[in-house]
Design a protein around this nucleic acid. Sequence first.
DNA 1: CGATTTTGTTCAGAGATGTGAACGGGGGTT
DNA 2: AACCCCCGTTCACATCTCTGAACAAAATCG
Lengths: 287, 287
Amino acid sequence: MTILPEPRRTTHSANRGGTAGDGAGSIKSAERVLRILDLLAGQPDGLAAPEIRSALGLPKSSLHGLLRVLCDRGYVFIDARVRRYRIGIRAWEVGQAYSRIRNVAVLVGPVMRELRDQLNETVQLAVLDGLDNLYLAKVDSEQPLRLVSGVGLRLPAHTTALGKVLLADLPTEELRRRLAGVTLARFNSRTIGDTPRLLRVLAEVRQAGYAEDDGEYTVGLFCVAVPVRDPAGTVVAALSCSMPSARAGVGPERAPNFLPALRACATRLGALMAPLPDPQDGLALGG
Amino acid sequence: MTILPEPRRTTHSANRGGTAGDGAGSIKSAERVLRILDLLAGQPDGLAAPEIRSALGLPKSSLHGLLRVLCDRGYVFIDARVRRYRIGIRAWEVGQAYSRIRNVAVLVGPVMRELRDQLNETVQLAVLDGLDNLYLAKVDSEQPLRLVSGVGLRLPAHTTALGKVLLADLPTEELRRRLAGVTLARFNSRTIGDTPRLLRVLAEVRQAGYAEDDGEYTVGLFCVAVPVRDPAGTVVAALSCSMPSARAGVGPERAPNFLPALRACATRLGALMAPLPDPQDGLALGG
DNA sequence: CGATTTTGTTCAGAGATGTGAACGGGGGTT
DNA sequence: AACCCCCGTTCACATCTCTGAACAAAATCG
């Protein structure tokens, strides 16, 4: 079991308490409650209390109060037979509110299915969170092809076409800040493993208006992605199609083959999806 | 804007602090964080900080710390242009973990679509949460019919066929506890409006193994629902089909028409969905 | 463009929460 | 069946959070 690397970091440096460990003036119980949810979300089989304790380094007596609140409110439930805590129905319900905001649940599906039928390839929609892309929706090709991605899952943005499109849209300064001190994970020899090269690739993506992934995460898988812009021009997501490299053909013109259909679909999706800023912008609380 | 009635209540009566307002020894910030999420989940357009404050009765200075934690962790984000807080992507991500646990995302859809094709009516899957049924999945009929329900939404269980099936499965004592002091909302003349009658109906449902809803929530809408049992026989959800009363016909044999198909599908779904207890069981923390 | 109202931030005292150690209870094991 | 081990619970003290009012900063309005 791996604990996710600290995904988000506040820019605020104000510190009240003095000792400061991490949160910098943050509210301990609030933080912990969310950490527990984060942790449990990654564990389909749930976690026993002692496992949560050791994963998050919480004292025994502190954890129980938190778990009781989470259980009482339905965000977590305990499977009594195995004494394991799992994500509860209330967490799901709250999450649905997000996809309703973005119209993902009802409106986006049919449009994406059309594109899938047009291309007969797997089609995906993702947004950026930190340095990961997060899959909002997916319509599988009818051809047999299993992707490791899936709705609600995340992959490192620098390894996917979707991710590169989304990263390319960030202001340079923001991009550098997010990349500062980060080591880009490599999954095979084609993965972009260093920041300078990533920045060069992103510049190309920005100019071309689309990104490719030629087996950079999964060997043998080729993807093309384009940004999804709302009517105001803001990038609200990215749209991709994925296929075995063999089916994509070779040479520099294989990506452009898919662009017209992808772009047409992206335009429709952009009109559907509410014009919301990148989640990360939540930091700008203090102005 | 209405605030949901306190949905869950712990059975624990232990009380540490003494003053007790509500939570009885609960952790204030933890509770508040979840309350904020609950509140924002119901507001597609988000809420400004003062609105959150008045809705939850929080002091000005307390709210900001909580919101900062929620924003930093991505559970909430602030739309800077309108200064409104909304449910964030992380909340969605965590919620997806729940539907993955129950296999709702990937496996349940195709099976339900088959049933829809068989019956050519809208098919829905729901679980119980307190006295509400919560829609996990839905496959629309191809005939024009708009239901007020939808994935992630909840309706009072006593007004729907799904809800009645789910309530009927509760042990009598648990049922009485949940109904204690509750006034059953009425939506039209057919809605079951008093507890004794509800208990009688539920007894019939228990015996028959299915429930009907003949316009009790939406006038003119007829539904039939059956329990979804896992291989061990535990009810893990309920499955229904809905149609305009006109199409259902009249007389006592209209529901049985749908039962064979519904039950066959429910059996398949039960095998797919992990054997998880009712969310409410989370209360049994103390053993 | 300036005044006004509303919102966000800061601060120190009051009060509730977090902590660690000891107790009680189950479950698994031999 | 009894033991042992581990988990969950309880408690009082130290600590950190919550609070309310005053201040500062926007946003709105005329």
